[in-house]
């Protein structure tokens, strides 16, 4: 079974990213990493290959520094990587990114494409579906569990009320939540081996895409700080803490 995992290199995943003067998130010259949300997808892919055999390819778009995210996935155990990097892609929106990723995925054989639910920095949560539509394949988003049974995808998809069991023929795409798989830490051996694994670096032209299709349709017009109410009072937990909280509940007339 051939699996593809869409992965993203995100700046400062544990902190707050910085906006540059052009209002774009600063992605170069800052500490970055494989998006933690994507690690679940990589892990889910590795487990499927361990159960059914096959190959895991990572596909990413980003600056050259994004190679670090691919290396992380490869050291976890993925077999190979593809990085699309091109100056024309700076500030790419979802549609552009989806066109690039779909074109990169289409270059090889695949049975299942996995991705995180949404990126930690952009949080749009729509990219995998746009990729699925461009690839003309079905999808199950928001899966807390993915399995392949008798050549079909079976996913537990979280819903507002609980979860649905979704069944789909392959090829298909699924996005996974943090419940789907606990990411493994790369072993020293895995890190050493990752250095020998093939990573292809491609440009937009290599994918046969025209620069016309690479134009972003979203421009930031203005950025301002939100009006937030100032922080309130912070007290130490003591005898009065409970009664102070109860006062707030009473003030809101809920007790």
């Amino acid at each position: 079974m051939n699996l593809v995992v869409l992965v993203k290199y995100v700046p400062e995943p544990q902190g707050i990213p910085t906006l540059g003067e052009d209002f774009l998130v600063v992605r170069e010259g800052v500490e970055g990493a494989l998006d933690p949300g994507d690690e679940y997808a990589v892990e889910a892919a590795l487990q499927l290959v361990e159960a059914h055999g096959g190959d895991v390819a990572l596909v990413s778009m980003g600056p050259e520094g994004a190679m670090a995210a691919l290396r992380r996935g490869l050291s976890m155990g993925a077999d190979r990587g593809v990085l699309v990097t091109d100056p024309v892609l700076r500030g790419a929106d979802i549609l552009v990114t989806a066109r690039v990723l779909a074109a990169a995925v289409r270059r090889g054989d695949y049975d299942l494409v996995l991705a995180g639910v949404e990126s930690t920095d952009g949080s749009t949560g729509t990219l995998p579906m746009t990729v699925a539509e461009l690839l003309e394949i079905p999808s199950a988003t928001f899966a807390r569990k993915v399995e392949v049974i008798d050549g079909s995808l079976r996913a537990e998809r979280q819903t507002e009320a609980g979860y649905d069991v979704v069944e789909s023929p392959l090829p298909a795409l699924a996005t996974v939540t943090g419940s789907a798989a606990e990411p493994r830490y790369p072993t020293l051996k895995g890190i050493m081996q990752s250095k020998q694994k093939p990573v292809e670096q491609l440009s937009v032209a290599d994918l046969g895409l025209s620069t016309e299709d690479m134009e972003s349709s979203q421009q930031v017009a203005s950025v301002k700080a939100a009006t937030v109410k100032g922080p309130g009072e912070v007290i130490e937990a003591g005898d009065e803490a409970a009664s102070r909280i109860a006062d707030i509940l009473a003030d809101a007339k809920v007790i």
């Binding site: 979802i94 549609l95 949080s123 749009t124 949560g125 990729v131 539509e133 988003t141 979280q158």
Partner: peptide, 22 residues
């Protein structure tokens, strides 16, 4: 919502128009 997000993501691929999230 999850269902609408999925539909919007797919529609964008077909119409080639912009999709703004959040």
């Amino acid at each position: 919502t999850y269902d609408s997000r999925d539909v919007a993501g797919r529609v964008q691929a077909r119409t080639g128009s912009t999709l703004m999230s959040n």
